[in-house]
Design a protein around this nucleic acid. Structure first.
Lengths: 144, 144
DNA sequence: CGGTATTAAGAGTCTCTTGTCTTAATATAT
DNA sequence: ATATATTAAGACAAGAGACTCTTAATACCG
């Protein structure tokens, strides 16, 4: 598993919010609605989305007509921001063999090839935004 | 974390065995010796290496002068074989968003970009063998 | 003001990974 | 045979990840 479960839930939920905001013109979507449509545990999703609001990626509002919404435009929220908030950046900085001091100075035997791929992956998640994904979403939803 | 801890230990140990076999001309290396040099728990490493012997990647021998050795030449053992035995191949087949039915037929919004990187990573681990790593090892050990 | 809808916070549970420890099996040497 | 060195196997424990549930805080509406 590349990401934790929580991280995949966060991405799915953020994407669904982005789609709903543009499609239905709503600002705040209740987490219960997201959990139902994504078939996820409401309480668990709530906790994960709290991380995104703390990271100022999303905004939340309590009470009737409350819910959660993007803190800025969908094309200003890249996947790396969500990944970083939920899972941290260790995937993109750590040695594949888990060696603590591996780096350019003291490379492990896998360092060259892995760090190259690692950077490519990172760049990919940096340039992919919720807006990018939302375009694809119109053709293929992820309730597959 | 790309791999489980056990998987990184397995790769480190297998590589050390490869190096020791060629450098010192020994056929079986005691696991205790590997655990000491790699600074890993002996019992845990033993359990992980059992997986590699079951997968016929390594061979073991009990009793005095016993230990563990490669089941074939180092250039015939690719990292993907070790990874597959310990962690399975799910990293190279699963959807980045964890969606069960994601694939060419029903792609999630990340499918195109991730499956491409996934394949590249897989090929990299297929073509990297213990012999490849052992070359690098002569310059930089991994007790860093 | 009181009821209701919603997120926030936090305790508690379940499961899987990681690691420890003990005992059994097996091979060697004397 | 007996002692010793080693892997094999399996029970057990600690920790983290993945949920579950309950209560509190907040906002709206009548």
């Amino acid at each position: 598993m590349l990401f934790s479960k929580g991280c995949t839930y966060a991405i799915r939920a953020a994407l669904l919010v982005a789609v709903k905001e543009t499609r239905e013109g709503r600002k705040f979507i209740p987490i219960r609605e997201l959990a139902d449509e994504l078939d996820l545990s409401f309480h668990f999703l709530t906790k994960i989305l709290q991380v995104l609001t703390e990271a100022e990626i999303m905004e939340s509002f309590r009470g009737p007509n409350g819910g959660i919404g993007l803190a800025r435009e969908a094309n200003k929220i890249s996947l790396i921001q969500i990944i970083s908030a939920v899972d941290g950046m260790s995937l993109f900085s750590e040695c594949a063999l888990g060696l603590p001091d591996c780096g350019e100075a003291k490379p492990c035997p896998l360092h060259q090839s892995w760090s190259k791929r690692r950077e490519e992956l990172k760049r990919m998640f940096e340039k992919t935004t919720l807006a990018t994904l939302a375009q694809d979403f119109s053709k293929n939803s992820f309730r597959n």
